[in-house]
Design a binder for these strands. Structure first.
Lengths: 146, 146
DNA sequence: CTGGCTGCAAAGACTTTGCAAGGCT
DNA sequence: AGCCTTGCAAAGTCTTTGCAGCCAG
């Protein structure tokens, strides 16, 4: 079992949540999806392959629980909500390919200067910030050329 | 009539779209809303005050048309879609108060360094980026203290 | 055992669509 | 006049909820 999965199991248990079969399958799907963003329906389809009678409402309920417990991250763009495993560390930023929905974290945060400005020169109290860079990854560009 | 409104009328006409009463009221609402983000239902309610029989579908259709024509900007956060007049200029970034939904553009873009990095050191082709800083404006913080 | 989870079915929120009538330009 | 728009009603999509039975710890 991947170390990553073990860590997540621990989080789940520590919160007093139960590790049901549906949850195990969902977590496995996320761990195997390589930080590709999946929508609820894709996740549902993948679950169905292993567990025929799992219901859509279970998927939604668990996605919400995973999101609340910071195991999973929910991102909405292009009129669609997608999910992926949450990266460790505090605030990080993503490059998102809008064709294959794979993501890659940026290695640094461009916000130093900006936060200083906001704190010193405005009345605004920043709580959190989103940086998402949308574009195409190399693989998808190559496929488009065909 | 505000100069801003005149410019928008011009855009609408140049695209071959018609300036119907419903559209005029909607645009007026946006111009008067001072870059506060409004959801479809709030816009609908405001229209109703001036034009009793305007339909929700008209509101949605026009919001889409305004968005397509870059008159209005559509932003989704906290599970809700909101609209506001689109700022001029190419790419700019917003501070958004999640209590009153007022916005303020940031005076500069923190992306110079970052874009250089992406272009030189990754295979990713950035198309657009979103920067949104969520927090509380001064007014809302003061009101919360009461 | 027992409180959390699930399947099922139904409802809910928000948004979109088809169509005939109406209204800008 | 001609085509874009609108009102109306109905449907669509995605997500949530209530409830009774089930199961992981």
């Amino acid at each position: 079992m991947p170390k990553q999965l073990k860590q997540i199991y621990k989080i789940i248990r520590e919160k007093g949540l139960k590790l049901t079969p549906a949850r195990k399958i969902m977590l496995e799907i996320f761990v195997n999806s390589d930080y590709k963003l999946l929508n609820a329906s894709q996740i549902y389809d993948l679950i169905k392959k292993q567990s025929k009678k799992t219901n859509f409402s279970t998927v939604y309920r668990n996605l919400e629980i995973f999101t609340e417990n910071e195991v999973v991250e929910k991102i909405t763009y292009n009129e669609e909500t997608r999910y992926k495993l949450r990266e460790q560390g505090p605030q990080y930023h993503l490059m998102i390919c809008t064709l294959c929905h794979k993501t890659k974290p940026l290695p640094f945060c461009p916000f130093g200067e900006l936060e200083t400005y906001i704190k010193n020169d405005t009345d605004f109290l920043p709580i959190k910030h989103h940086v998402e860079i949308y574009g195409y990854c190399k693989k998808c560009r190559q496929q488009q050329e065909d």
